[in-house]
Amino acid sequence: MQQPYIKYIAIAIIVLTTTIGCTKKEYKIPTPKDTLQNDCIKRTQGPNIVGQTIEFAYAMAILAEKGNLTNAKVEATMEGDAGTWMENKSYYTNNSGVDVGISVGNASVTAKNVTSVAFNKDTNAATLRYYYVIPEAARGQSVSFTFSAESSNGETVSFKMGPYTIAKMDMKKNITLTDGGLMYLSIADMTAYNATDAAAKAASIDLVYLYRNITTSAYNFALVSPAADAQYLPGVTLPGGVTRSTYERRVVNLQDFNLAQMQYGIYIDDLDFQQLNMTNEPNYAINLKQEAGVWVETADHKYRAYVYFNTASTSTKNAVVSMKRYAL
């Protein structure tokens, strides 16, 4: 490139940079809209499971000189289960990072699919939390919500959330398993039984829990099908009729958020169960430990499940497991 051109381009760049770079835009406090405003976020993440809660935070505000808030209301497309409610407190976070609630209205009233809070304080801005307990009727369906607020000057405003798909799967947390006691696990019932009860429910017993400290091999905690080879059930005499063979696959590092009840951000959803291929899998899972898990498919192909070990104690030989289960 010729020398004079470079010179001109350089000058042009400097002039442009100086002009644009030195422009000072004065910050202006935004002018608030003078009508009743609202906004909403969904606070819970992951799959929406029957019996669990979906939490929202609904914010509403009006200029003080225009009036105050009189009523907040949520209308769900399907009636929530018992325990559905809306907070009558508006929260702020104090200097210690703690959310402090201040009562701004009467306790919420839920009539069928509508939950409402009537404000009883002179409030012109509030954020109320709404907890919707997912009913059995919503399984596999979708649910939407319409949040609305009213102010003393007669204005109304609303905000739609959803639709949210409700998972088909079930979940049961914290099932205690004891070696020699509650060691017979039924996926259909999502319950652990002792030998006597297992004999009475033999047709629904899918897994046998046991702990063995074997020095020659790594056995440890195990979930074994009743029909598995006897070498995987050392010292176990099965109750009469307990003979099912369950497909199993041991997994590590799959700490589902709902099951683990810890900080992990992994969620097992319906899709995982739908895409699971358990053909050719064994009917035992040994050498399990705390935070390990087992994918399971029952012998009759009615259920797929993920059983997660919350705790596993070598001293007590007990374990606490949680389960997500999907009906095929």
Binding site: S217, A218, Y219, Y232, N280, E281, Y284, I286
Partner: peptide, 9 residues
């Protein structure tokens, strides 16, 4: 291999 290894997978 460890006792209990699923040799098919």
């Amino acid at each position: 291999v460890q006792f209990g290894t699923d040799l098919k997978n």
